[in-house]
Nucleic acid binder design. Structure first.
Length: 825
RNA sequence: GCCGGGAUGGCGGAAUGGUAGACGCGGCGGACUUAAAAUCCGCUGGCCUCACGGCUGUGUGGGUUCGAGUCCCUCUCCCGGCACCA
C-alpha cells in the first residue's frame, strides 16, 4: 500500500515570488505586444479553452509548455504574440441553464472570470488586452458577416438534413447527448427527423484541403486523419437500365471503385431513402418495403453496429439491366447502402465485395467470380475475393489483369455514354445549423413574398435576445421568442420571420486567430494592416482531438476567405504540434469517478507555478502525455531547491588562487553543450530533455563548487546563462534570482544564450573498442585521434587481446570520435 | 475490419545504425542528528563470481549489417482515429 509521499518544502517563498512578479509584469505591461515592433513576428497560438468553470491540470499541460515555447521564441529575438481567449458559446452553458436555471451568459461569464484568475497563475505571456470571448456581440457579429459573405458567394446553402430527435423530450439532440442510442436526459430511444438547415460547401474544397503543401510542419497523424476524413476514392459512375421502364427515370446510377467486376453484378442495392424506391417498388412488395424503411429509420447507429456484419434488405420487385452484358438483375433496398455516399446505389458483386457476399448468401443470390484468385480451381468462393487477378467470365475483357480491365472497361463505358470516371468523397458539407439558443444567430429572414433574404450587413449584429425559454420544446429556443422571430423583410418591408437556428461553435474557432490581432476593431473582423503584419499563425498547439473538425473547418474557412479576396494567405496554421494527454497518478485518464483528478490550484498555492510548469514539461515527451505524480513533483521541488541554493552562493567566496584552467575549460564545455542541447530541444518542444540537460549542468556546477578549481568569472557566467535558459521554463523564480544576482530587470527581455561549437567540443573522448561488435574495452583518447592510432591503441589493449588471441583480424571498422570494431575469425 | 502511433529497469523516461538505461522518481547503504524529517555522499537491469571479470538483456520470431532499441519482414499486445464509404 502506498502511503502519501513526504512533501518536500521549498527553501524559497514560491507563492510570494509568483505574486510579486506577476503583479510587476502586469503593471509594466511586459507582455503587451506592440504591432509595430520592428523585430520579426512570431505568432504562436494555443487552442483556446472552453469556459467550463475550472482550469484543470489538463489545461496547464496544454498551456504551460506552449507558453514556454513562445517565451523561448521571444528570447530568440522575435516579437511574439501568444494570445488567449474563450470558446464561450456551446451546449454546456445551455444545459446549465436548463438544469440549474442560470442564464447561459451569467454561467459563462462567471466561469470566465474564474478561469482568467487561474490562467494568470500560470505566469504566461498572454496579452490580456487582446483577450477574445466569442459570445460577445462584437465577436459573433463577424460570424454573421462571414456567413453573409459565404452566402453571397454561393458557399452557404439551405437543405434538408436529418437531426437526432428525442420523441419524448420533443427536442433535437446533439450527438454527445445520445447514449447508446438513447436520450441522455430521459432515456427514451432516439429517432431521426429531417429539418431545413444551413450548410457550407466544404466539399467544393476537397482537392485543396487534400493539398498539404502550404503547411510547414504538421504531424503526419493529423494529415493522415484529414485525408481519411475527406475520403477521396476514384471510381466509375455506371448506369443500369430500369426494366420495365414505365417510369420517368430510365436508369439507376451506381458508383463503384471496382468497375473491373462489372460482369459479376448479380443484384443492385439502393439506400432505403433513395428517391427511386417508391417508383420502383411493385404493388405486391409495397408492404414489405414500407416496413423495412420504417425499421431502418428507427434503427440508431448504435443498433446498426450491434448487428455487426449482418446485411439486411428487401427485394422491391423491379429489375435493372447491366448494359455490358444485357443481364437482368433484381433491385433491393438495404441499409448497408448509405444515402450520403456515392450515388446511394451500389452494384452488387458478391464475388468481390465482402458486404455484397454476405448479402448474397443471406438472400440466395448468385455469386459469379470474374477476377480469378491465384490457383483458383473454378469452384465456389467461401468468401469474397478482394485481390488482384486475371479477368474471367468477362466477355471481351477476358484474360486481362483486373487492373487493365479497370481501364479498358471505364474507357468503353465512357465511349458508349453509359457512365463516366468520377471521384467520390466521404466528407459531407459542413452543417452549421444548431437548434440551440447559446450560439450566433444565423442572419437570415424568411419572407412570404421574397423568400430567403439575408440580413443587410449594416444591420449586424443580429443580437441574441437575453430572454429566451431554454426548456426543450422541439424547436430552437429562439423560435418561442416572438420579439426575436417577428421582423420585417429587409427587401419588401412586409412582416417576415427570422431564422431561429444558431451557428455551430466551430464557426467561432475557424477564424479566431484573426480577432486576437485587433479585438476592438469595428470595421471588419480584423484590421487589415494588423492582419498583414501577423497572419498566418506560425505555430499552433493543442489537442489531437481537433484533428478533423476544427482544423479542417478552419483550413476551409481560410481558403474560402482567400477566394473571396478578404485575405491573401491559404493556410491558417503553418505549424502544428499536438500535446498528449496528462493522466492520473494511477496512469488512468483523469475523471471525477476515479477520484484521480489533480487540482492545479492546490499545488500552485504550495509549490508555486514554476515547479508545476517544470514538472509538466519533465514528465516525458510533450506529444506523448504521461502520468501526474506527487512524488515526481517532489523531485522537481528538490531540484529547484538545489538551483536556488546554487544561485544564492556568493562567488566572492571562491578562492581564485585554487582556480585551475582545466576546470574552467571543462565547465565552459559543459555550459556550451547545455546551451546547444537546451536550444535545440526547446525549439522542437522536447522540454523533458532540455530540463534534464539543465539538471546535468546543475550537478556539474555543484560538483566544481564543492571540489574547487573554478574561478569566479566562470561561475558567474555559468549561473547567468543557466538562469537565462531556465527563464522560459520557470519564469517567476528565474526573475527573482536574476534580481538577486544583481542583474537588471527583466530576465524575460534578454536573449537566449548562444553557444560556441569550439568551446562545446570534447577534447577527450571515450573510444569504444569492439571485437566482432561486442564492447571489450573503453579507452580515453584525444577527440581528434586518427584511425591508425586508434587501431593501434585498440590492439594494444590486453582486454582486447584476450579476445583476438589466436585469431586473425580480417577487418577493422573505425567510426571517428566513437569506436573501433575489430572483426576476427 | 481499415488507417495511424507505440511496447526499453521497480516507475516516468534517454539514446544522428556505433558504450542501452542520460535525467528524475523509488529502493538500499553511509554521513549529519538524542531521534526523525530535510540535506549531503555512494550503490542500484538480471544471472554467475570473494574479486578481476564474464554471460545475458530494449514485446515475439526471423532478416539486413562489421555492428540493430533504432532499418526490413512475421506475429502478439496496448493506445488513438474512422467505421457497412460501394
Amino acid at each position: 500500500m502506498t502511503t502519501s509521499p513526504r512533501q518536500v518544502e521549498l527553501r524559497y517563498d514560491a507563492v510570494a515570488i509568483d505574486r510579486k512578479w506577476q503583479a510587476l509584469w502586469d503593471q509594466d505591461g511586459l507582455h503587451r505586444v506592440d504591432n509595430d515592433d520592428p523585430r520579426p513576428k512570431w505568432y504562436e497560438m494555443t487552442m483556446y479553452p472552453y469556459p467550463s468553470g475550472d482550469l484543470h491540470i489538463g489545461h496547464w499541460y496544454a498551456m504551460a509548455p506552449a507558453d514556454c515555447h513562445a517565451r523561448f521564441r521571444r528570447m530568440q529575438g522575435y516579437n511574439v504574440l501568444h494570445p488567449i481567449g474563450f470558446d464561450a458559446f456551446g451546449l454546456p452553458a445551455e444545459n446549465a441553464a436548463i438544469s440549474r436555471g442560470i442564464h447561459p451568459y451569467t454561467w459563462t461569464m462567471s466561469n470566465i472570470e474564474n478561469m482568467r484568475r487561474q490562467l494568470r497563475s500560470l505566469g504566461a505571456i498572454y496579452d490580456w488586452d487582446r483577450e477574445i470571448v466569442c459570445c460577445a456581440p462584437e465577436y459573433y457579429r463577424w460570424n454573421q458577416w462571414f456567413f453573409l459573405k459565404f452566402y453571397e458567394r454561393g458557399l452557404a446553402y439551405r437543405n434538408k438534413a436529418p437531426v437526432v430527435w428525442c420523441p419524448s423530450c420533443q427536442t433535437v439532440l446533439a450527438n454527445e447527448q445520445v447514449l447508446n442510442g438513447n436520450c441522455e436526459r430521459c432515456g427514451s430511444e432516439i429517432t431521426r427527423r429531417d429539418l431545413e438547415q444551413w450548410f457550407f460547401r466544404i466539399t467544393e474544397y476537397t482537392d485543396r484541403l487534400l493539398d498539404f503543401s502550404g503547411l510547414q510542419d504538421w504531424p503526419d497523424k493529423i494529415l493522415n486523419m484529414q485525408t481519411n476524413w475527406i475520403g477521396r476514392s476514384e471510381g466509375v459512375e455506371i448506369s443500369f437500365d430500369i426494366a420495365p421502364s414505365n417510369i420517368d427515370e430510365k436508369e439507376i446510377r451506381t458508383f463503384t471503385t471496382r468497375i473491373d467486376t462489372i460482369f459479376g453484378v448479380t443484384f443492385i442495392v439502393l439506400a432505403p431513402e433513395h428517391p427511386l424506391v417508391s417508383q420502383l417498388t411493385t404493388d405486391d412488395k409495397q408492404e414489405d418495403v414500407e416496413a423495412y424503411i420504417n425499421r431502418a429509420r428507427q434503427t440508431s447507429e448504435i443498433d446498426r453496429m450491434s448487428t455487426e456484419g449482418e446485411k439486411t434488405g428487401v427485394f422491391i420487385g423491379s429489375y435493372a439491366i447491366n448494359r455490358l452484358n444485357g443481364e437482368r438483375v433484381p433491385v433491393y433496398i438495404g441499409d448497408y447502402v448509405l444515402m450520403t455516399y456515392g450515388t446511394s446505389a451500389v452494384m452488387g458483386v458478391p464475388a468481390h465485395d465482402a458486404r455484397d457476399f454476405v448479402f448474397a448468401k443471406k438472400y440466395g443470390l448468385p455469386v459469379r467470380t470474374v477476377v480469378a484468385p491465384i490457383e483458383w480451381n473454378g469452384g465456389e468462393l467461401s468468401e469474397a475475393y478482394l485481390g488482384e487477378g486475371f479477368m474471367t467470365n468477362s466477355a471481351r475483357y477476358e484474360g486481362m489483369t483486373n487492373e487493365e480491365g479497370k481501364v479498358a472497361i471505364a474507357l468503353d463505358i465512357e465511349k458508349n455514354g453509359w457512365g463516366k470516371r468520377t471521384v467520390s468523397f466521404r466528407i459531407r458539407d459542413w452543417l452549421i445549423s444548431r437548434q440551440r439558443y447559446w450560439g450566433t444567430p444565423i442572419p437570415m429572414v424568411y419572407c412570404q413574398a421574397c423568400g430567403i433574404v439575408p440580413v443587410p450587413e449594416e444591420d449586424l449584429p443580429v443580437l441574441l435576445p437575453p430572454d429566451a425559454d431554454f426548456k426543450p420544446t422541439g424547436e430552437s429556443p429562439l423560435a418561442a421568442n416572438a420579439e426575436f422571430v417577428n421582423t420585417t423583410c429587409p427587401r419588401c418591408h412586409d412582416p417576415a420571420k427570422r431564422e431561429t437556428d444558431t451557428m455551430d461553435t466551430f464557426m467561432d474557432s475557424s477564424w479566431y486567430m484573426m480577432r486576437y490581432l485587433s479585438p476592438d476593431y469595428d470595421q471588419a473582423p480584423v484590421d487589415p494592416s494588423v492582419g498583414k503584419r501577423w497572419l498566418p499563425v506560425d505555430q499552433y498547439t493543442g489537442g489531437a482531438e481537433h484533428a478533423v473538425m476544427h482544423l479542417l473547418y478552419s483550413r476551409f474557412f481560410i481558403k474560402a476567405l482567400k477566394d473571396i479576396g478578404f485575405i491573401d494567405f491559404d493556410e491558417p496554421f503553418l505549424r502544428l504540434f499536438n500535446q498528449g494527454v496528462i493522466l492520473g497518478q494511477d496512469h488512468e485518464k483523469m475523471s471525477k469517478s476515479r477520484g484521480n483528478v489533480v487540482n492545479p490550484d492546490e499545488v500552485v498555492n504550495h509549490l508555486g507555478a514554476d515547479a508545476v510548469r517544470c514538472f509538466l514539461m519533465f514528465i516525458g515527451p510533450w506529444d506523448q502525455g504521461g502520468p501526474w505524480s506527487e512524488v515526481g513533483m517532489n523531485g522537481m521541488a528538490r531540484w529547484l531547491n538545489r538551483v536556488w541554493d546554487m544561485v544564492a552562493r556568493d562567488p566572492s567566496e571562491i578562492n581564485e588562487a585554487r582556480a585551475v584552467p582545466e576546470t574552467k575549460r571543462e565547465i565552459m564545455r559543459l555550459l556550451h553543450q547545455t546551451i546547444r542541447k537546451c536550444h535545440n530541444d526547446l525549439d522542437r518542444f522536447k522540454f523533458n530533455t532540455a530540463i534534464a540537460a539543465l539538471m546535468e549542468l546543475t550537478n556539474g556546477l555543484n560538483r566544481v563548487w564543492a571540489d574547487g578549481g573554478i574561478d569566479s568569472d566562470t561561475w558567474r557566467e555559468s549561473i547567468e546563462k543557466f538562469l537565462l535558459m531556465l527563464a522560459p521554463i520557470a519564469p517567476h523564480v528565474t526573475e527573482e534570482m536574476w534580481e538577486l544576482t544583481g542583474h537588471t530587470y527583466s530576465i524575460h527581455q534578454q536573449l537566449f544564450p548562444t553557444w560556441d561549437d569550439g568551446l562545446a567540443a570534447d577534447e577527450m573522448i571515450t573510444l569504444v573498442v569492439q571485437v566482432n561488435g561486442k564492447v571489450r574495452d573503453k579507452l580515453e583518447v584525444p577527440a581528434d585521434i586518427e584511425e591508425g592510432a586508434a587501431r593501434e591503441l585498440a590492439l594494444a589493449s590486453p582486454k582486447v587481446q584476450s579476445f583476438t588471441e589466436g585469431k586473425s583480424i580480417f577487418k577493422s571498422v573505425y567510426v571517428p570520435g566513437r569506436l573501433v570494431n575489430l572483426v576476427v575469425r
